[in-house]
């Protein structure tokens, strides 16, 4: 698409959307949000990016192949489940630790890791599909 307005606004819009998607992912455990929704927002951002600036630009911007991202996410989610096995509790039991960082307690958990895995699978898989379809549109 050759719209000048879109191409001008797109970078800003995309940056905002990606930030928002991560925000939605992180707050998901306590307020509406989570890996699925955050991932979908990121996919939408990348899809817009693709339409505005071409698929090649997007591919360069995300560095990794979308499917590799999805695969890493799936691996991450699986590992998050396996942590609990190592702690002698059943598969997929949530494990929480609260290390202090600059005097501030930061709750970390395997559940967080799992949700991030979900996020990456959604981003990777759906971006891969959308980009592949957009690519076909260009030729």
């Amino acid at each position: 698409m050759k719209s000048l307005i879109l191409r001008t606004v797109a970078p800003l819009l995309i940056a905002l959307m990606l930030m928002f998607s991560i925000f939605v992912l992180l707050r998901g455990h306590n307020e509406p949000g989570g890996g699925f929704i955050g991932g979908l927002i990121a996919v939408a951002a990348l899809a817009i990016h693709g339409i505005a600036n071409g698929v090649e630009t997007v591919r360069r911007a995300i560095v990794f192949d979308p499917l590799a991202i999805a695969g890493a996410g799936l691996l991450m989610a699986t590992l998050a489940g396996l942590i609990s096995l190592w702690m002698q509790v059943p598969f997929m039991t949530g494990i929480w630790i609260e290390p202090s960082l600059l005097g501030q307690k930061v709750p970390l958990s395997s559940v967080m890791l799992f949700d991030t895995g979900v996020y990456l699978v959604v981003v990777g898989a759906l971006t891969g599909v959308v980009l592949a379809l957009e690519e076909r549109g260009e030729d």
Partner: peptide
């Protein structure tokens, strides 16, 4: 929630 994503795939 999961059904939506799966049915989209």
């Amino acid at each position: 929630l999961t059904a939506i994503v799966i049915s989209f795939s």
